[in-house]
Design a protein around this nucleic acid. Structure first.
Lengths: 188, 188
DNA sequence: TTGAGCATGTAACACGTTACATGATTTC
DNA sequence: GAAATCATGTAACGTGTTACATGCTCAA
């Protein structure tokens, strides 16, 4: 239930924030790490309040509700970080497709990877813009991670494209023999 | 709906496979990219069959059902890769926690990052073992990506730990001023 | 004959996404 | 007064996770 802890963590840093404020924070700062929708934020806030981890400390105009973390909420946040292990990052759709590029013609596989290179390039530009508003501290640290991760992705795509080109135009052999995935399967 | 396409892609590469075979393939090859549970694999296979993208081509002992991709299924697989854009990878729980390390004491924050360094190290060992069974081709390419991504993560964790140490023991200033996240918030 | 591994499926619940629905306040 | 923005919530649907439930077959 990471989403609830993300909401809890933001409330802990931003006493007096509303669901609306949180949503903006998710978009501005957590978009690359843990995106959330409006529904999720409001529902999460309601459940955290029901569990006593946050409380509504004020009401503003337009039905605005301002929240703050409780002692129990702060303990829960610390417990989550120090006493539970995060799941390793998984589910990368663009990498999943790489597994199946062998079903495509070489030109299509290359086109896919070239598009991915452009995507990485574009993401790096957007990240640079974000970087200037980030200040120091842990937020900056995570941006630095994303920067390095994107650089690696771009380098890897370029490497992968070279591999395909080498297989196609390099010395000898049918191209598909090399980069069509094949492996032994035992059945029954 | 990437899961269904992952199942479809595996059936396309492995004609005559059963749900049980697919599950093993998910664990062996796609675990780091798109993990799937037994329920999902069987449900996905059933839906793909209902949609005419795969068909049951044989039945074996113990109720075993062997599937193969249809022409429509192969078209759908190619369409998915070439005509739809993958969502960028998101949701990294271990990175999410980094945002909230400012709520912990310095020693706890360091302990968290040190643990993450160990996790990355361990993952690299496991990946090396996998690498030897991978053969060439696109599977090998995605393993190469994971290898590079893990290396970056380990380097980044070490960098982050140095940042904290520098702030704590370096020249001047209250430590928390530097790495406690703070930023301007506009409200109401 | 017994246990490991093959083999399939369902049910309940949590989470995530999209769309719908409504209304107040400020700014131009 | 119209438009932008603030502000909250619900409903429907699809996906993902965990646990349950069952039975066959082969090898030791």
């Amino acid at each position: 239930m990471s989403l609830r802890h993300a909401v809890l963590g933001l409330v802990a840093e931003l006493p007096g924030c509303s669901g609306y404020d949180l949503l903006k924070q998710f978009d501005a700062r957590l978009a690359g790490v843990w995106p959330a929708t409006q529904s999720q934020v409001y529902a999460g806030l309601a459940r955290l309040a029901a569990d006593g981890f946050v409380e509504c400390v004020a009401e503003g105009p337009r039905g605005r509700k301002e929240y703050a973390v409780t002692d129990a909420g702060m303990r829960e946040l610390r417990r989550w970080i120090t006493e539970t292990r995060p799941r390793p990052a998984r589910r990368d759709e663009s990498l999943l497709r790489v597994f199946f590029l062998g079903r495509l013609e070489p030109g299509q596989a290359k086109a896919y990877l070239e598009d991915q290179a452009r995507v990485a390039e574009q993401a790096m530009v957007e990240l640079s813009a974000l970087d200037e508003t980030a200040g120091r501290g842990f937020w900056r640290m995570s941006i630095e991670y994303e920067r390095r991760a994107l650089a690696v992705r771009r380098e890897w795509v370029e490497w992968a494209l070279r591999q395909i080109s080498d297989d196609l135009h390099g010395p000898g052999g049918s191209p598909t023999d090399k980069w069509l995935t094949s492996w032994p399967v035992r059945r029954g």
